[in-house]
Design a binder for these strands. Structure first.
Lengths: 145, 145
DNA sequence: TTAGCTAAGTTAGCATGTTAAGTTACAGGC
DNA sequence: GCCTGTAACTTAACATGCTAACTTAGCTAA
């Protein structure tokens, strides 16, 4: 079946995401989307909703709903920014931290297993992917101006 | 910002998909999901809903709804399989063929531009991606048995 | 011919993505 | 002190993914 890069990427990631989602729901009772949001707050320091949207690659309304859900679940603390402005300051609750740290490494390891099994050089593929993301980001920002 | 492969892949593809969707809606008045479904019927010969689900990497209920929409829009022809069984035979209408052929090449070219701009070797990245998809597919099938 | 098996498709309800259009909090000029 | 602009967030309506449960069509065997 001859396919092209954009299609293969789309389908590969759709499957990886779905597998991740199934594992997380079964073993940790949380969805992959929610886990990603918590990870970006906890480990990459997304401290406002706008920043979190930017890091996640989704829109602000999506984040607005998500933070409401995570706060209601007791995983995320959402406070008005003490520095002022119409901002929310995001941080993990103790429970949120526990979830992120217990999952993250286990998770990346599983993907590494698939990569190793396929014979694709992990470091190189990761580097290419990161570079594509950076470039695409830049092109979008330039086009947006 | 230090990130990992699974996260970068997820975000990269989320952005590519969203950009694709915006372009298609603006210039061709169709969503990316619908375009992909038509492409797989037209160019890769997905001739039943189950096969189409497999190729798209989505579930059968998703395809069931999608084929209904595409048929209602006059882009897809959905008929009971003359060979019998509870099957639908899928094929593009004239309009569906027109849409697919006018978009597909233009589209892959845009991605190739991003890849070239980033300095990532296209052929190698495409080959790695295809290999990962094949491997992941196999692992999932093995685990499913 | 009828009961059960299997493959393929559908329905219902929910999760999470989107866009478009509002709202809120502050800053700056008059 | 009040208008206006900007940044950040929210609300509403819809698109499309999922799982669970059901239906439909044909096959096989008693």
């Amino acid at each position: 079946m001859e396919r092209n890069l954009s299609l293969n990427l789309h389908v590969l990631i759709a499957r990886l995401d779905r597998a991740a989602d199934r594992i997380l729901r079964a073993e940790h009772n949380i969805s992959y989307s929610r886990f990603l949001a918590l990870t970006l707050v906890g480990e990459l320091g997304a401290s406002t909703q706008r920043t979190l949207a930017e890091y996640l690659g989704v829109t602000e309304p999506s984040v607005s709903r998500m933070t409401g859900i995570l706060a209601a679940d007791g995983l995320l603390d959402v406070q008005p920014d003490p520095a002022g402005g119409n901002r929310r300051q995001l941080s993990l609750t103790g429970e949120g931290k526990r979830v992120v740290s217990s999952i993250r490494q286990e998770f990346e390891d599983r993907l590494a297993t698939v990569v190793a099994e396929s014979g694709v050089p992990y470091a190189e593929y990761a580097e290419h992917t990161a570079r594509l993301l950076t470039t695409f980001d830049r092109l979008e920002r330039e086009a947006g101006k």
